[in-house]
Write a protein that binds this DNA or RNA. Structure first.
Length: 419
RNA sequence: GCGGAUGUAGCUCAGUUGGCUAGAGCACCUGGUUGUGGCCCAGGGGGUCGUGAGUUCAAGCCUCAUCAUUCGCCCCA
């Protein structure tokens, strides 16, 4: 009987993010704090776990996310809790609970961290994934829509990400969308069901709006004359949409008016947008968001409007250049003097340099190889002679020159390197 | 939830119609040379071929199952 323990593995869809991922994530978060901070956004750190009904109420009980993608389970007290599948609902809850959205106040908030959805993993889609999320509460004005989009584009520019397409649409409001839904359904009934693809036949009943963005060429041909949202929204929504477009155009933002853009979360209305990359596989939506007037009230808060977006950090990372790793200042090779190597390394670090010392047994040659691999600028050599004389040999790894140095002079040497 | 592909060394992969001790490159270790690292040379360690069963004289290769990974669909960031 084999008693060898099997190696334990990570949970499916949950990834370990080593470098370069971790470094790219840090850069994204730092950039977010700086750029969003310039627009008045404050950071909020949210819990990962919420009561399950927050999401069914906010996202919509009929959505795919709520129906089949949430990690929901009873806690030890028997209450249903959910690992958050998105951030907006939690931000709304936090603002209401802490009185941050009083009638006259305006809140601009961002957060970042892991989200959880039980989906089949593929490129650009993990079960634990990470988002940066911004929400602006309290402004109905189209300037708010334009500003948050400008901020998002600013942020991406700072990360060096270009060549994204901005899709823009209006989804109407709670007053005009039902009428549009009826018009679309009526149109779909005029088509013969056999001509639509299997997915669309189902969607025509369950979620007619979704039929609009089917990728099948045959379906798209049939839908050429379908009623479209921008032509059917109420005058208020139409004015709002026109104003947003004009503001973006004034700022030189090119966008692709996509009357078939629909979003899968029920709380969106009016402005909806997506930023899409064609360079990272099938899951090309890098950021998405829109307006959600009415959501706060629906969750028991004040009747304030809101607009926000989320961007997927893994997907952004796929578009970023890997940051070159910082080159260490030193490496200490000390084949028979690990203890001294440790001491000297501490001296150098406290003087402000970075680097490492070889502790493991190994020939000078193999430790020099390590020094070379570490890409350190200088190798400090502690061989037999140096140990006997209380010195250290400092070798410039690029120029292949070296000179001896008294150990007591190390702090001064380190200080020179800092300049 | 549905479909396709793939699991052979730490990594990237070869492995012909099943046939002796399973290979390469890179990486790693030891040594030589270089004034103590990079280049070069010599040597070396490391794989129960994802797992389990079946067919066969013989399975890395064929069959079935199972697990895992991956790319798509769906949906979303």
């Amino acid at each position: 009987m084999d008693t060898t323990p099997r190696a334990i593995r990570s949970v499916k869809g949950f990834a370990d993010l080593f470098e370069p991922w971790s470094a790219l994530f840090t850069r994204m978060e730092d950039t977010a704090r700086r750029v969003f901070g310039a627009y008045g956004y404050r950071e909020l750190r949210l819990p990962l776990l919420e009561y399950a009904d927050l999401f069914s109420r906010a996202i919509g009980a009929e959505t795919d996310v709520v129906q089949k993608e949430m990690f929901t389970f009873p806690d030890r007290g028997g209450r249903l809790v959910t690992l958050r599948p998105e951030a907006t609902a939690g931000i709304m809850r936090a603002c209401i609970e802490n009185g941050l959205c009083g009638r006259e106040s305006l809140s601009r908030i961002f957060t970042c961290g892991p989200m959880f959805r039980y989906e089949r993993p593929q490129k650009g889609r993990m079960r634990q994934f990470h988002q940066i999320d911004c929400e602006c509460l309290g402004l109905v004005e189209p300037q708010a829509d334009a500003e948050i989009l400008l901020m998002l584009l600013h942020f991406l520019r700072e990360l060096g990400i270009r060549d994204l397409v901005l899709d823009l649409n209006t989804l109407g409001c709670r007053l005009c969308r039902p009428a549009y839904g009826r018009a679309l359904t009526a149109f779909l009934l005029t088509l013969s069901p056999e001509d639509l693809c299997e997915n669309c036949r189902r969607r025509a009943r369950t979620n007619p709006l979704r039929v609009l963005d089917c990728k099948e060429a045959a379906c798209q041909a049939l839908l050429r004359d379908a009623p479209l949202l921008p032509d059917h929204v109420c005058p208020d929504c139409a004015d709002h949409f026109a104003a947003v477009r004009a503001l973006l155009e004034n700022q030189g933002v090119a966008c692709n008016l996509n009357p078939r853009l629909v979003r899968g979360l029920d709380y969106y209305n009016r402005t909806a947008f997506e930023l899409i990359s064609s360079a990272i596989g099938a899951q090309g939506a890098v950021a998405g968001g829109g307006r959600y007037d009415g959501l706060l009230a629906q969750l028991g808060g004040p009747d304030l409007p809101g607009i926000g977006f989320a961007c997927g950090m893994e997907r952004l990372a796929l578009l970023m250049d890997e940051a070159g790793r910082n080159r260490p200042d030193f490496f200490i090779a000390a084949p028979r003097a690990a203890g001294t190597a440790l001491e000297l390394a501490q001296v150098l670090r406290e003087a402000g340099l970075c680097g490492e010392a070889a502790f493991s047994a190994g020939s000078l040659k193999s430790q020099m190889r390590q020094a070379s691999r570490s890409r350190a600028r200088f190798c400090l050599i502690l061989g037999e002679e140096e140990l006997a004389q209380g010195t250290v040999t400092i070798r410039d790894m690029d120029k292949a020159t070296q000179h001896p140095l008294s150990r007591t002079d190390l702090p001064a040497w380190a200080a020179e390197r800092l300049v």
